[in-house]
């Protein structure tokens, strides 16, 4: 029998090691798996490489993980925001490494990892600072940059509902990176607002098939506003 439901966020993050590369879902606070990040802070893993769209908002979630000094490097598209003070402080002090990736390339690099693609040519970023030193190619008259997949040890994502097979559906724009991150990690952990019985999710409407998901945990939390 397949049962990916685990009882607590603490049990869900068990086994995450120091030095791990961790994909963290969310666009601002929408889709940010706060309960899993709190559990990860308590679990203690450190020297992490975090892949996420932003570098934390306010004092909770990813921002709290950074504030707890567990993050060695952030790979993201948009670190600097009005409320990214924990990241900003450590970055300016030279205490945290940053790799800035255009948002669509970030998404495609994650997708490529999940899809078993070795690398891909993208037009985004060609001729800019973010493509310096990278291999380029002209294909059918258009210029492209070679980008490599981002594979991860762990993905922490948030969905609206899941079943014991790990099938997931999301909430509105909180879906964002969830489905692609689920596919790109060796261990994918989803926190959901609700666990539903097997068969309750319409197969036509499942967004992330359970094959991509390792553990599912219920966490009731109100998403803090991003604005």
């Amino acid at each position: 029998m397949i049962d990916k439901i685990v009882p607590t966020p603490e049990a869900a993050v068990e086994g995450i090691r120091d030095g791990a590369t961790v994909l963290v879902g969310g666009f601002g606070t929408a889709g940010m798996p706060f309960a899993l990040l709190d559990a990860l802070i308590a679990q203690g893993a450190t020297d992490l490489t975090i892949v996420s769209n932003n570098a934390g908002n306010g004092d909770a979630g990813l921002a709290a993980l950074i504030a707890a000094r567990r993050v060695r490097k952030v790979i993201c598209s948009f670190p600097r925001q009005h409320d990214s003070w924990h990241f900003d402080r450590q970055y300016r002090a030279g205490e945290i490494e940053l790799e800035v990736v255009p948002q669509g390339n970030l998404a495609e690099r994650i997708r490529a990892a999940g899809a078993g693609i070795g690398a891909f040519f993208t037009p985004t970023g060609y001729g800019t600072l973010l493509a310096e030193g990278k291999e380029t190619r002209t294909i059918d008259g258009r210029d492209y940059v070679l980008e490599y997949p981002i594979r991860a040890d762990v993905a922490l994502i948030k969905a609206r509902a899941g079943d014991r097979h790990g099938n997931l559906v999301y909430a509105k724009t909180a879906r964002n990176f969830g489905p692609i991150m689920a596919s790109a990690a060796a261990l994918t952990i989803a926190q959901v607002s609700e666990v539903v019985p097997l068969g309750a999710l319409d197969p036509e409407c499942v967004v992330t098939p359970g094959i991509f998901v390792s553990r599912v945990v219920v966490a009731h939390e109100a998403t803090p506003p991003s604005w």
Partner: peptide, 16 residues
């Protein structure tokens, strides 16, 4: 030099 680089979707939108 003191600016923290942040690109978001700008480069994707520019060619997209």
């Amino acid at each position: 030099p003191d600016a923290i680089p942040a690109v978001g979707g700008a480069m994707d939108l520019a060619i997209g």
